[in-house]
Computed example of a mutant assay.
Amino acid sequence: MSDRPFQDEIPPPAGRRNDRVLILVVLLAMVLGLASPPGRRAFDTIRLLASLGGTPAFVAAQAVAYPGGRADLYGQSGPVLLLLPGAAVAGKDDPRLVRFAAALVGAGWRVMVPDLLGAKALTLSAADAAEVAQAIRHAPGDRVALAAISYAAIPAVLASLEPEVAAKVAVLAAVGPPYDARRVIGFFTTGFWQGQRLEPNAYGKWVFVLSNARRLTDTGDRTLLEAIARRRMADLGVAIDDLTPRLGPQGRAVMALLDNEDPGRVADLLDGLPPGIGDEIGRLDLAARDLSGFGPELLVIHGADDRIVPVGEGESLAAAVPHGQFYRLGNLAHADLTASGLGDGLTLGRAVYRLLEWRDRMG
């Protein structure tokens, strides 16, 4: 054996040495990239998208109370994002919302999910904006971000029009938001939106009935409409002909709108609704509001396959505010933040990256 044990070792070929150098350069670039704010945001964007498409790590919620409301608080540190539930009876406890909150915590947010009683009870009204405003006022930190699911975008926008509240809101991300209330009602009753025929999801129709039945002055019609709505929400094909003949003039006006299939009659049928319902539709109609003074940046994410709120509604809302950005996905159902396909993933990734830019500004 030689006393210089390595002198006979065959040196690696030049190509292999170059490969090793290239790998070291790539690894160094990755390290340097992740050390920069854009690199970290890109990494967090990918991680958040992966969490939304899978099962994010469990995050325990801390119950908090504030004047006029209560909420679940996820995460221990980071800027605060208020996650606003849409119209769903599970409210803040909806499993999809809980997973979404956990994914956001993994991306560096501290997530506050208020218990919005109006949206939870499906008694949708402009008064829901007061609940949202109160949650914003009492959220930790000087500035907050908002993420609103579907209907929740309406009270989120209305609350953020108040100067005191607007001063605290940095950005609002809205998923599948309505804009023109009369146009959306026309869609889920007839299937027509701006001259196009689509197949609406009937859930929106019966949420509308349930949320407005309590506004009738005829208590008998109110009871019957609530029963009709709950029956149809449980089973869209169930018979209701044992209930509809018993309706009075107020209930028949509502059912005439629901049974109508002619888009040309929608305006007159809406105008013929009992005043309590018509007035509330007007208060919830963002298209009837002057949004030129809306201060926060608005990120609208909407799927072209949405059959509850057509994608054009989100596009119109983004165009109606000074700082609106619109992200159109091909497949998003209604408010399911799981992108399918490379194109949708890239589009959703752009929206997430922009939201994370606000996270870094606020942090």
Rank of each mutant, 00 (worst) to 15 (best):
residue 92 K to I: 05
residue 135 A to L: 06
residue 207 V to N: 10
residue 326 F to M: 00
residue 67 P to V: 05
residue 293 G to F: 07
residue 116 L to V: 02
residue 144 V to M: 03
residue 198 L to Y: 14
residue 30 M to Y: 06
residue 174 A to K: 04
residue 284 L to I: 14
residue 348 L to I: 11
residue 178 P to S: 03
residue 10 I to E: 13
residue 204 G to V: 01
residue 300 V to M: 05
residue 81 L to Y: 03
residue 306 D to S: 05
residue 123 T to R: 15
residue 242 D to G: 00
residue 282 G to L: 04
residue 284 L to S: 13
residue 298 L to T: 08
residue 246 R to Q: 15
residue 219 T to P: 02
residue 311 V to L: 11
residue 95 P to T: 10
residue 262 D to M: 04
residue 32 L to T: 13
residue 240 I to H: 07
residue 5 P to S: 09
residue 11 P to V: 03
residue 132 V to E: 10
residue 68 G to H: 01
residue 152 A to I: 13
residue 278 G to E: 00
residue 102 A to C: 02
residue 140 P to C: 05
residue 165 V to H: 03
residue 265 R to A: 15
residue 250 Q to V: 03
residue 206 W to Y: 15
residue 118 G to A: 08
residue 329 L to G: 11
residue 139 A to M: 09
residue 50 A to M: 08
residue 132 V to P: 06
residue 89 V to M: 06
residue 53 G to R: 05
residue 278 G to M: 11
residue 207 V to Y: 09
residue 206 W to V: 09
residue 47 R to D: 11
residue 140 P to A: 03
residue 341 G to H: 11
residue 298 L to M: 00
residue 180 D to S: 09
residue 21 V to L: 14
residue 19 D to I: 13
residue 234 A to D: 12
residue 39 G to S: 08
residue 288 A to H: 12
residue 219 T to G: 00
residue 191 G to V: 09
residue 169 V to G: 05
residue 46 I to D: 05
residue 156 A to F: 02
residue 205 K to P: 01
residue 18 N to Q: 13
residue 219 T to R: 15
residue 249 P to I: 02
residue 56 P to A: 09
residue 132 V to F: 09
residue 298 L to V: 08
residue 323 H to T: 01
residue 239 A to C: 07
residue 103 A to S: 10
residue 308 I to F: 07
residue 221 D to C: 04
residue 114 P to C: 04
residue 194 Q to Y: 11
residue 4 R to A: 12
residue 223 T to E: 12
residue 57 A to S: 14
residue 47 R to K: 11
residue 79 P to L: 06
